[in-house]
Amino acid sequence: MAREHLEKLSGELGFELDVVDVDEHALRDPELREEFGDRLPVVLLNGVEHSYGSVDEQRLRADLAM
């Protein structure tokens, strides 16, 4: 659900969306699961955690406008 929401916003706002499947990636990098495992889905903005659980669209729009 979060991915679909972000894909829609990406098209509208013109940002690049990079999706990482934590379960799949954790096979190669178990630390990723340890870092984000209990907060999925996680939205990172420029490598910094922006929100988790769901997309905070209002906050994301404001932060992208900066």
Rank of each mutant, 00 (worst) to 15 (best):
M66N: 14
L17C: 14
E24L: 13
S54N: 02
K8A: 09
E4H: 11
E12G: 05
G53C: 04
K8P: 05
P41Y: 00
D56W: 05
M1P: 08
V43M: 03
D18T: 15
S10I: 13
R39H: 03
E16L: 13
L6S: 08
V22Q: 08
E34L: 10
R39V: 00
Q58M: 09
E16T: 15
E7F: 02
L27G: 05
M1Y: 09
L13C: 07
L40W: 00
G11M: 01
L60C: 06
F36E: 01
D63F: 07
D18N: 14
D56P: 01
L13K: 13
K8T: 01
R28L: 12
D63S: 14
H50K: 02
K8H: 05
L64K: 09
L17K: 08
L40I: 15
V55L: 03
V55P: 10
D63V: 13
E16G: 14
L27H: 02
Y52M: 00
L17G: 10
D29I: 04
E24V: 12
Q58W: 12
G37L: 00
Q58H: 08
A26W: 11
M1E: 05
A62R: 06
E4D: 10
D23A: 15
Q58Y: 06
D23K: 10
L44T: 06
S54V: 02
D23T: 12
P41H: 00
R28F: 13
L40Y: 01
D29K: 15
K8L: 09
G14I: 15
A2W: 00
E31T: 14
E34D: 11
Q58N: 13
E7S: 06
V42C: 05
E7Q: 13
L64M: 07
G47E: 04
V43W: 01
S10T: 13
S54M: 02
V22W: 04
V42F: 04
G11A: 05
A62K: 07
E7R: 03
G11R: 03
L44S: 01
E12H: 10
A62S: 09
L6P: 08
F15E: 07
H5E: 15
V48A: 13
V43C: 10
L17F: 06
F15I: 09
E34S: 05
A65I: 09
L45H: 05
L40A: 04
L45C: 03
V55C: 00
R33S: 07
G53M: 02
E16K: 14
H5T: 11
V19D: 11
A2C: 11
A26V: 13
D23F: 06
D23Q: 10
H25C: 11
R33A: 07
Y52F: 14
R59K: 14
V19A: 12
A65S: 14
G47C: 08
R28V: 10
D63N: 09
L44A: 10
V42R: 03
L27P: 06
E35N: 05
Y52A: 01
L64R: 04
Q58C: 02
G14M: 11
R3M: 00
E4L: 10
L9N: 03
E34W: 06
G53P: 06
G47W: 00
P41K: 02
R59A: 06
L6D: 00
P30H: 15
P30V: 11
L13F: 05
P30K: 10
E31K: 12
E57I: 09
E16R: 15
H50L: 00
P41Q: 03
E49N: 04
D23W: 06
E4C: 04
K8W: 02
G47L: 04
G14A: 15
P41N: 07
A2R: 05
V42D: 01
E35H: 08
N46T: 07
